[in-house]
């Protein structure tokens, strides 16, 4: 069972976490689309702090004996998933930049040609 003070610390930490996300959202430093994942993560953390027995149950289902180990495994797994999604976002943006550059170059040529005929 988690001691009361630790539980209080964790709750404050999660609240800070939510405030930070909301602050970033307000500043438009985060897209709501990508923030949903982080919000869901926060909700999950909150639930686990309030009902820690749930975590123990889930961990047992997966056959992990040690509670802390289970927590770390889930935490790392979650982070890897987020990293993977970030890489895929970066690749997609890469593709979009490429298309933009190509289209820009074609427009640039068109402008040059139009300027040439204009000055004649």
């Amino acid at each position: 069972m988690i001691p009361a003070t630790l539980r209080l610390t964790l709750i404050i930490a999660v609240i800070c976490y939510f405030i930070m996300i909301l602050y970033f959202l307000k500043q438009k430093a985060l897209n709501l689309k990508y923030t949903l994942l982080w919000l869901v993560a926060g909700v999950v953390m909150g639930i686990l702090i309030v009902v820690p027995e749930l975590l123990v149950k889930i961990i047992r289902i997966f056959g992990i004996q040690d509670n802390m180990n289970g927590l770390f495994i889930f935490g790392i797994g979650f982070i890897i998933m987020i990293l993977l999604s970030l890489t895929s976002i970066a690749s997609r943006q890469n593709r979009k930049i490429r298309t933009l550059t190509q289209e820009l170059a074609i427009l640039d040529k068109r402008v040059r040609e139009l300027e040439k005929t204009d000055s004649k």
Binding site: R98, T101, Q102, E103, A105, I106, D108, K109
Partner: peptide
């Protein structure tokens, strides 16, 4: 010359593809 000026270096693939996009257009 007739040329496209890509503002970012994209590697041979991106450059050639720009040519194909132009050809299609």
């Amino acid at each position: 010359f007739h040329y496209l000026d890509l503002s970012i270096n994209m590697g041979i693939g991106g450059a050639v593809q720009a040519g194909y996009i132009y050809a299609r257009k």
